[in-house]
């Protein structure tokens, strides 16, 4: 056997790759469900997006800090209420002065929405979600905190709990 040289090592490796291509082509050609060598269309891959999640405080509906949120005079105050529910739920009921930012589990909140919240002048942001598990309010609050917003909180129980509190009863 000839002594191995770097050139012969690379040559034999390339030869093995050639044999691999031939074997792959041969087997694929015999398959009933042969894979096309070039994908005809983009693969639909669903990979969880990298989460930029920060820490957001949690509030309960009976928190004294929330007392004035439900008053009609709240709108324009220093606390900005963001409603993470869908447009329909928002239209049905929402905190006076709340801003609708429907949370999308598959897409990040648009930068312009975050910029608008930053430009609101509010010193505190309270996110009200659907109260489900997971709670859209919690998710949006964490996302906003991760994007640099300070003093962000979310309401445990979400809009249903807050609405019940407003009506003077527990959910």
């Amino acid at each position: 056997m000839q002594a191995e040289t770097p050139r012969s090592i690379v040559r034999d490796a390339l030869l093995a790759c050639g044999v691999a291509v031939a074997l792959a082509a041969g087997l694929n050609a015999t398959r009933t469900d042969a894979l096309p060598w070039v994908a005809p269309r983009e693969y639909q891959v669903l990979v969880p997006c990298p989460e930029v999640a920060g820490e957001a405080a949690v509030l309960t509906p009976d928190d004294p800090a929330l007392a004035d949120l439900l008053s009609p005079s709240h709108a324009g105050g220093r606390t900005l209420v963001i409603d993470a529910r869908g447009q329909e739920a928002f239209a049905a009921w929402h905190v006076p002065g709340a801003r609708s930012v429907p949370y999308d589990y598959l897409a990040p909140t648009p930068p312009e929405t975050v910029s608008a919240i930053l430009a609101s002048g509010a010193t505190r942001v309270v996110v009200v979600g659907d109260g489900d598990d997971p709670d859209s309010g919690r998710e949006l609050a964490r996302e906003l905190a991760g994007k640099g917003l300070k003093n962000v909180a979310w309401l445990k129980g979400g809009a249903p709990a807050l609405k019940a509190a407003a009506e003077g009863r527990r959910p």
Partner: peptide, 28 residues
């Protein structure tokens, strides 16, 4: 091939060829 695609690393045109040939390189 789907596993390869989820890496979002190779161009679409190379994904299937890579998925077909790589296992045979591994075998050899």
């Amino acid at each position: 091939a789907l596993d390869v695609a989820t890496y979002q690393f190779l161009p679409l045109a190379a994904i299937n060829a890579f998925a077909l040939v790589l296992p045979w390189v591994e075998v050899l």
